[in-house]
Design a protein around this nucleic acid. Structure first.
Lengths: 103, 103
DNA sequence: TTAACAGTTGAACAATTGTTCAAATGATGG
DNA sequence: CCATCATTTGAACAATTGTTCAACTGTTAA
């Protein structure tokens, strides 16, 4: 014990957990690819699956996570559900990631 | 086949994978807490462990991940290794996450 | 050299995650 | 209503992850 611990003010645990959950949404390449597709416009589930060459179910599962995080919206048109980006932050968050890894 | 698929230009798979790996580093609350501690200054491993009330080994494992991602640096002083933030992006990336979850 | 300390490492474990499959839901047009 | 299409859902599985523990490395001071 040479010195008393410096006092550090961390945000409450709950907020840190929410922050970590938020970032882990971007921590999966399928979800990033979905977001990049939707950056180009509105698409229904089957289209996204076809573009990414993946099963419809896998895409649907991921869309649910993105929707819960309020990163995408959906709109029904006939039998189709069209998904689109819900948030303007998405672009800038991804951009900052790109910036970091390209330095 | 009613319509040809719209052409979407995604970044190469390798870059998307690196992006996902980068974001998943922020997807763990221990690592976020370490980064927030280091936002206050330089600390050695045992101090971080004490502040976060965790084992030294757990912190060391996470610091290795943060260092590989070039988010922290270390500097030896005697028996101690002092860690500090390596990158100015860290603040703004976390800030953007906070912004999103508080809207 | 030795003892003590600071930190790292690797194996092990439980917990969480993403994808697949099959079955269910819900909307549409005939 | 019925058949069909688009999507969702839940269970199952393998793969990945974070923490713990014990052993190890490396530095310092005596």
């Amino acid at each position: 014990m040479t010195e008393p611990n410096r006092k550090i003010n961390l945000p409450p645990e709950k907020e840190i957990d929410r922050l970590a959950s938020f970032f882990s949404i971007f921590g999966d390449s399928t979800r990033i690819r979905i977001l990049l597709v939707l950056a180009d416009g509105e698409f229904c589930v089957a289209d996204i699956a076809s573009i990414l060459e993946m099963g419809v179910s896998a895409i649907s599962h991921q869309l649910r996570i993105l929707k819960q995080a309020q990163l995408v919206r959906s709109r029904r048109n006939g039998k189709n559900l069209f998904y689109s980006l819900a948030d303007s932050h998405v672009h800038s968050i991804i951009s900052q990631g790109v910036e970091h890894i390209n330095e």
